[in-house]
Nucleic acid binder design. Sequence first.
DNA 1: ACTATAGCGGAGGGATGCCTCCGCTATCAA
DNA 2: TTGATAGCGGAGGCATCCCTCCGCTATAGT
Lengths: 189, 189
Amino acid sequence: MEQSRPVLQVDVRRPQRADARRNFDALLAAARDAFASKGVGASLEDIARQAGVGIGTLYRNFPARQDLLNAVYFGEIEELCLAAEQAADLPPWEALTTWLHRFVGYAATKRAIWESLNREADSFKAAREAMYAAGAPLFERAQEAGEARNDVSFDDLLRMVSGLTAAGFVDQAQRDRVLTIALDGVRAR
Amino acid sequence: MEQSRPVLQVDVRRPQRADARRNFDALLAAARDAFASKGVGASLEDIARQAGVGIGTLYRNFPARQDLLNAVYFGEIEELCLAAEQAADLPPWEALTTWLHRFVGYAATKRAIWESLNREADSFKAAREAMYAAGAPLFERAQEAGEARNDVSFDDLLRMVSGLTAAGFVDQAQRDRVLTIALDGVRAR
DNA sequence: ACTATAGCGGAGGGATGCCTCCGCTATCAA
DNA sequence: TTGATAGCGGAGGCATCCCTCCGCTATAGT
């Protein structure tokens, strides 16, 4: 009824044979870059070329564009959920902000993917839930410690940070500075 | 040497003849919608069709895609600069936030255009400067009145708001709520 | 080493978009 | 009203992308 092992399961199976696995990974890496730099509309043929494989190989692994998009996207989410677990050791407010900064860092160049996924798909819902399950405890802990406002929802917070993620900044330093400012608005006074 | 009359001048001339002017305006309106809903990659042929004119007419008025993009974009900026003047009558903090909310409102659906303009073009620089010239005084006034933090730059602020502009929100209410939270981080304490 | 076969790659057909070109039409000054 | 002409529109050539299909090749178990 319910998958339990990995946080997400979007069965895009990694092939068995060594050469196939190599190609699969190369495609994923190339797609990650291409989507980040050229948006969701990036040419699949370019991606295959970049990965050093034929277009046929791309289609064998990812029959539809969306499958490739999903694979990249869910991979990112997976890593982020992991980061939340690791942050849990820190004190409440620090744990929250650490994770959020990481959220921005990872997603900064990946904004394009979000766009296409704003449409409601069921697998997308699962990802969102995993995301929330990972981050919400950090936020609630900060609230309980009296460090975060109680009249702000985790959904508000995540969307705010998503926005900052998408914005164009001069450099990483400005991005972090601005995130910190915005987070000050969330801090209890 | 220096244009002085309108805030911006990106000489995309509006045609003289009545029918031509009608078409020009229809194209601009159709482009505004198309770019907003489908991104900068929207099909020019669709835009022409939507405007009820031939593709040839589109190209006569806007020889390159970028020309159309510019026309739409600079139109928006123009309106925003106007809004800043109107907000100047309000008390400092209110004037600033009023304008910023308007900024979000106008730009909310237009995020796609920003993307393509993040590349450095000289005319883009002019737009950015106009934008800053319009909004910065509101911010400085709020700072002088002790209502806004002094360790935040107007550039930081605008980029923060731009980000929130781009984020996907459930509804306008959430967007405003989140903007208010983020602005709390800018408020002097 | 051998061989069954999983996996490969890229040619090519179909679709779509970009942009040019030119014969036709609506506008407006006289 | 009429004529000069600014402006129209869409056919069509070119480029690009998507995706399928199938003969070839590398892998891995024996």
